[in-house]
Nucleic acid binder design. Sequence first.
RNA 1: GGGGGGAUAGCGAAGUGGCCAAACGCAGAUGACUGUAAAUCAUUUCCCAUCGGGUUCGGCAGUUCAAAUCUGUCUCCCCCCA
Length: 390
Amino acid sequence: MAKNMLLFLSVITMTFSFEIKHICKQTGARYGVLHTEHGDVETPIFMPVGTLASVKYLSPEDLYAMGSGIVLANTYHLWLRPGPDVIKQAGGLHRFMNYKRPLLTDSGGFQVFSLAERRKITEEGVTFKNHLDGSKLFMSPEKSIELQNAFGADIIMSFDECPPYPCSYEYMKESVERTTRWAERGKKAHQNPKQALFGIVQGGAYEDLRKLSAEALVKIDFPGYAIGGTSVGETKETMYKMIEYSTKYLPEDKPRYLMGVGSYDAIIEGVLRGIDMFDCVLPTRIARHGALMTSTGRINIRDKKYEFDFSPLDAECNCYTCQNYSRAYLRHLYKCEEGFVKRLLSIHNINFLLNLTKEIRQAICEDRFGDFKEAFFHKYGLNVTNPRGF
RNA sequence: GGGGGGAUAGCGAAGUGGCCAAACGCAGAUGACUGUAAAUCAUUUCCCAUCGGGUUCGGCAGUUCAAAUCUGUCUCCCCCCA
């Protein structure tokens, strides 16, 4: 009873905060804790993506079992279906999707990029030609925040434009300035103090524009900052520069979230450059397409060489799939298009990245993240089949 | 016994004298996917090879400059009549 009371009190009093607990003496990488209304999560963290209020093919229990913390959902897609009224009436996104740990909603800014063919940008906002029925929809910074307030995720994102790569300097400058104005408008519109609104640094690969963007956002003052416009076709080297150009101008004591990045090498390189949070559809999407991340490189379960392979996907993996099923069985299910395989493979890839970030946190706490990186890359370097490092 | 139809690459199925190593679907073999319009997309599958070459369209024998396509014949399959 007393415990419940305490929990209740903590729920009504707890607001968002970030605490850096340790800085790796070897690399300067950060280990921290995000405090949210739905519990604490340690950083660096990988956040699985559940666009439509579900991490495809996985249950909340699957996610808890893997130690998942924050999960993402998407404002644009939930706006279309089921719409804010349903989620509001359900008692918020947490209750609606039955996820008890922290949630983060993306603003719809990524859809400005991914649905570029079907939208028009103006100073006021973005007009989308709805991909479901073709009807016109208008998303403004205020609308995005209003929706996100209705959904009630612990962390919400500023409505931005995720510009393409490559992108001309002139366009990028215009875009960054507009995204900055949108960030300001969004902050003004933000109603729920329990939700932490993050700003998003843009500027592509232009150092001065990243600086311009970061400094302007810091001036507006957000409880956390994201780095956007990454993983949109640029090389890894360019992405690492984008990170450096951005983090340089961000306050040390606020969380930094690298948006849309989820290959294991980029996560390690990101942490090395001071990133605390990552999200990516990569593990779930490639899993559905038969590709798995393993401790000895990437494999594709479709391949004939696994026909009689009764070993697990990854001998070092502790996930449910690797503990119970063989490559031969998973290949069989994949070949026969049995839906179960999508769950099993998704579990493995999500677990792989959650486990990777867990090992990263340990290494940081023990001041050996540099050694960890070297050992990790060495191991992968010997076996990796994909030069991009998946 | 009589009449009709058919045999094309792993399977199904187009093609009915040159533009055919042969459409398309399935199946097979690979690859890609990074704030999810994604159970999607791309490549590839007769043989050898880098260009290129060599064997194919039930078998055999013909006609023709040229045949998967025309003729004869054989084998097998299906349908109808008795």
